[in-house]
Nucleic acid binder design. Sequence first.
DNA 1: CGATAATAGTAAGACATCTAACCATAGGAG
DNA 2: CTCCTATGGTTAGATGTCTTACTATTATCG
Lengths: 160, 160
Amino acid sequence: MTADPDTGAGAGPERGTVFAFFNEIGIIAQLSQALLGKVLPDGVHPSHFAIMNHLVRLGDGKPPVRIASAMQVTKATMTHSLAVLERRGLIETRPSAEDARSKLVYLTVAGRSFHAEAIAGANRAFGRIVGEPELQTMRECIPALVEIRKLLDENRDPGE
Amino acid sequence: MTADPDTGAGAGPERGTVFAFFNEIGIIAQLSQALLGKVLPDGVHPSHFAIMNHLVRLGDGKPPVRIASAMQVTKATMTHSLAVLERRGLIETRPSAEDARSKLVYLTVAGRSFHAEAIAGANRAFGRIVGEPELQTMRECIPALVEIRKLLDENRDPGE
DNA sequence: CGATAATAGTAAGACATCTAACCATAGGAG
DNA sequence: CTCCTATGGTTAGATGTCTTACTATTATCG
């Protein structure tokens, strides 16, 4: 008996597990991204925030192609997103000294403070919803997620 | 010491947990969707498959607005997606008998066999990557995911 | 009953993303 | 050194999704 039809469980003996797992993952990702989107000012997409977040956490001064690879989007998409962020003054790009083909992406002061405010806003938004018991659930769940994420990451096509 | 910088842990005492959790979720969702996309024939988007899957699992003969709500997309998006699926002969729509404003969406025979093949292809693709230990990890993780998914689902804005 | 609000679906325009094609530079093989 | 391939970045066109505005029908309320 499938108590909750949304889980997709019951479709098969073992395969149903994989299906149900990714199904839940997909829904959570969509809902959390929608929540994040509401916190961001108009014209800043969650994916733009993800780029900022990456630069703050792992350091800036990297070429677009490396950011694209980390974010799992194409070079063309990164070109577009960086143009948006640069127009907004949140990042700046300078030519690379070692490779004339390449640019390097840097956060501006405005970009860093924008990121800090967005983080604060997101924490307020999620804090309004996520209580201590769910926090505990998440904490216990993270190692498993990391394991699966690494598994998929190792098996993804190069160039994506 | 943040062993894995990708987790985003270490950004705060408790808040980092929420952040790391949703970060992993987002990455897994993206990678798994990319994997699914490779299995589908050209021109069929993962979101289209999700609609088919919904209709197979929870039954067809429903109006677009209900499918849109279940898939968490807008009515306009559903109009577009259903047009694609109908052009491909995977679904068909008939006017509702009870409500003259409304249509009802039905799977065609071609649609059902398409779905079955897609499921089989997805299982092959995931089976090539996911082994027994990860399957076990997923199994243990699902209840937690369901809990978080329901939490977010209950707290989302109506009309999305 | 008749006016107003709510709901189902669509259309138009914007934006993010993708693929395919292109240019410029780098790096190797001969 | 020269040619060929690989790599970083951009451009153009297609597709998916969103918001806003609109039409048609239904429901509610006076």
